[in-house]
Write a protein that binds this DNA or RNA. Structure first.
Lengths: 246, 246
DNA sequence: ACCTGAACACCGTTCAAGT
DNA sequence: ACCTGAACACCGTTCAAGT
């Protein structure tokens, strides 16, 4: 885990000759690369600084705070997920958004927990995404308070699922914990939990609460597809309730 | 933030007279109380140790690891959420589960991020919850792979929403960040984001990505209710697709 | 403006030693 | 079995000082 600075840079204080060597951008890229490689648990300001061959204080000059940097990283990952407007029916636009969002998270799974579980990172998602979802839902017939409700349900369905699918394993003794949970799952008492016992082969390590690997190793593809369908079907039912006079 | 140990205990090494002074249970309770009061960001093994008037190593003798303790805390919060079996139709049972789960999280909002965003904590949820959801979905007509898909959708819908609703604010300069986001939200360019601009009064600080307070200050009650309805409507549509021969 | 070098006040975890 | 006391190898952030 310990790495030397890649290049033995000048290492004298003072403003460098050819403009700034660092930038918020470059730092965020380095942080993302490090998180992709070693996970969010191994991320630290000092590690990123070492990676870039500078002192920790230098990183702080550019990004102010650890949380701000992580928000920047999350924004980078989610920058390109919004589908273009105006080419798809609202149902298909939303489905496409879900797909592109999951593709982005699958490329950077260790960032997933930031998206749903940190207000800062969540708040740095692209405005186009918000606009697009609202446009789709308006097309579906929502307005006012129902529009807000439908919007919140769409965002929660999408980011909530992904946050859970790629939620990280314990940092250290991963296999010990995995073995323990596998044991626990397979020794469930049939009399107390008959339904669970009956369907255990279908569920073990492939269902929430009952798994010891996350989406990186065992992706929940078909469940995510189903989640999209259920969400859209539910939204259509909601829209129908709003205009019973057909 | 600094507190003395409540009682100046003997402070000599060795096995105490009347059995163990500490236990995994007592430690988890203390941790939960501390997290409720000061947030997950202020949680540390050393703080809990100080709170209990013992050395950090003493805590480690009982709980092995920081993550394990947090999983224990999550389990404590979620211990009582499962509704009794056999009294409700499956739709109502699931709705009741959602309600009770949200009530539990609202009592301990700072624990929310553990539920969805940490595989360890997620894995320590009660088995009765799993059994109950599966029983409800079986009653709805699901089996085999569709059962697994429906199950994952239910859990993701429930915990995903709550994880997001109560996701924590930045640790330190909260109000500076809030002011900045509020500014950003209210200076959205109308020509680029017309739909968002039009509905901003309905959305600002009450919709994901557009808020600077979390569910503790600004709960998303009606959106959660709608989320339940959408999920159940979507599940019913899914069930209908499975038996087109009525 | 941009960076060094060092310091401050923390962490989680381990380990020998006590009783 | 249960706890002390101290240590190890880390953290994020701040700050004076350089150029």
């Amino acid at each position: 885990m310990k790495k030397k600075a890649p290049e033995p840079r000048p290492r004298t204080a003072g403003r460098p000759a050819g403009g700034a060597a660092l930038s918020k951008q470059r730092i965020a890229e380095a942080a993302l690369a490090h998180i992709d490689a070693f996970g969010l648990g191994a991320f630290s300001m000092r590690e990123i600084a070492a990676q870039l061959g500078v002192y920790p204080a230098t990183v702080h000059w550019h990004v102010s705070t650890r949380e701000a940097l992580l928000a920047e990283v999350a924004a980078t990952v989610m920058a390109q997920v919004t589908p273009p407007k105006g080419t798809l029916a609202w149902q298909n636009w939303i489905a496409e958004l879900f797909h592109r969002c999951r593709a982005a998270v699958r490329q950077h799974p260790n960032v997933a927990q930031l998206l749903g579980a940190q207000l800062v990172s969540n708040g740095s998602l692209p405005t186009e995404l918000v606009e697009g979802v609202l446009a789709a839902l308006t097309e579906a017939g929502f307005d006012g308070e129902p529009l807000r409700e439908a919007y919140n349900c769409v965002i929660a369905a999408m980011l909530g699922f992904l946050t859970m699918e790629f939620s990280p394993l314990p940092a250290d003794n991963t296999q010990a914990w995995a073995e323990e949970l596998r044991e626990r799952v397979h020794t469930i008492r049939p009399l107390d939990h008959p339904v669970l016992t009956r369907h255990l082969p279908q569920l073990a390590n492939q269902a929430f609460i009952l798994r010891w690997d996350n989406g990186t190793t065992v992706p929940l593809d078909s469940s995510f597809e189903r989640h999209i369908q259920i969400t859209i079907d539910g939204l259509e039912a909601f829209a129908r309730r709003l205009k019973p006079a057909q």
